[in-house]
Simulated scan of single mutants.
Amino acid sequence: MKTWITTLGLAAGLAFASTAGAQQKELSFGIISTESSANLKSTWQPLLDDMQKVTGYKVNAFFSTDYAGIIEGMRFNKVQVAWFGNKSAMEAVDRAGAEVFARMTQPDGGTGYWSLMIVHKDSKLQTLQDVLKDRQQLTLGFGDPNSTSGALVPGYYAFAQNGVDPVKDFKRTVRANHETNILAVASRQIDVATVASDGVDRMKIKLPEKHAELRVVWRSPQIASDPMAWRKDLDADAKQKVKDFFLAYGKEAREKEILAKLTIGGFIASSNDQLLPIRQLALAGERGKVEADTTISAEEKARKLKDIDARLAELGRQVASAAK
């Protein structure tokens, strides 16, 4: 099923590319792989059907087996609009000519979510420190490398700040999407996993008996809700129609019901500025690796750290300016 859906997405993207320079008729909408493609298709398709009706464009769902596939899809114009996490959006902005135009809100109206570390409810592990202490005997379910809540945020706050390498220091580390990691913990196939809080919320809706098997042992600082992004060179008329659609969506009862299955409250305007804290986090993680690197000379380390500190200072200025 995954192969068939991904192939369908690729074909749709190529169909769009063949009309480049002609009248805009189709849009391919990229959906990051937080769950199986079949599950994502069933929950996103009603929204995409509404998007097609309102904008007048044929809207095709584009799936990939990992986050990088959506980033590359946008890079090569096989994807024109996409739902990203903050880390994958940052990569898409830097590598694929993407631009953030909106962000999701939570069902309760909030504008953020969390990275969680979960274990089976009967696990002896009670805290993050328990996990770190016993890590050499544990199997860790870690997120996609481009996942904000599955990899970047816990990689820094839970592991790097405690001098732990999540890839090397556990008995075994497996990478998977949020849904797979949640189900693996619930069925005791792995000991602990880093996942998104909204992924856990969706599991409570879909499979409450699995959700009941979970327990949270660590919660991150709040993360900005997921961004929506388009290619910067998308036709101006298409941009306006797409933005108008998302900012207006979720006001009617039927639309609210569709969004509830996605654990989304609605959408608000945003920009690339929402990615600045993620850039700070990524650089801070890079700085920690340089500091711990024993293979380079003191001079080389000092040079690299000076460069990173300058970039962090500039990001700090940008964050302060954006907050005004």
Rank of each mutant, 00 (worst) to 15 (best):
A260T: 01
L10I: 05
R287N: 00
I296R: 04
E72D: 01
G141C: 07
Q52I: 05
N86Q: 07
A229K: 02
V200K: 10
M1C: 00
A11M: 10
N181R: 15
I32G: 01
T295N: 13
T7M: 07
D108R: 04
V195E: 07
V174W: 06
R135G: 12
R172S: 11
G30A: 03
A236I: 14
A236T: 13
L132E: 02
R317H: 11
G69K: 15
E179Q: 10
I71S: 04
E213R: 06
A196L: 03
S147D: 03
S271C: 14
S64Y: 10
F142L: 13
I118G: 02
S225K: 03
A38M: 07
Q23C: 11
A298D: 13
Q280F: 07
A61Q: 14
A238R: 09
A20N: 13
K133E: 05
E179F: 01
I182E: 12
D191A: 11
D122Q: 15
Q106W: 02
Y57H: 08
R135P: 07
T65L: 07
S37W: 01
T139M: 15
S220V: 09
S321C: 00
F76L: 15
V217F: 14
A229V: 01
D66Q: 06
G13H: 09
E291F: 03
E299W: 00
T295F: 05
K289T: 10
I264Y: 08
T19Q: 15
I205T: 11
T194Y: 07
T127P: 05
A17S: 09
F142T: 02
R311N: 07
K210E: 14
K124Y: 06
E255Y: 06
S297K: 04
A68C: 00
D134S: 09
V153L: 15
K251H: 11
L40C: 03
Q274E: 10
E99R: 05
D233R: 05
D244S: 14
S33L: 00
E35A: 00
P277A: 06
F62I: 00
L262T: 02
R317A: 13
E209H: 02
F159N: 13
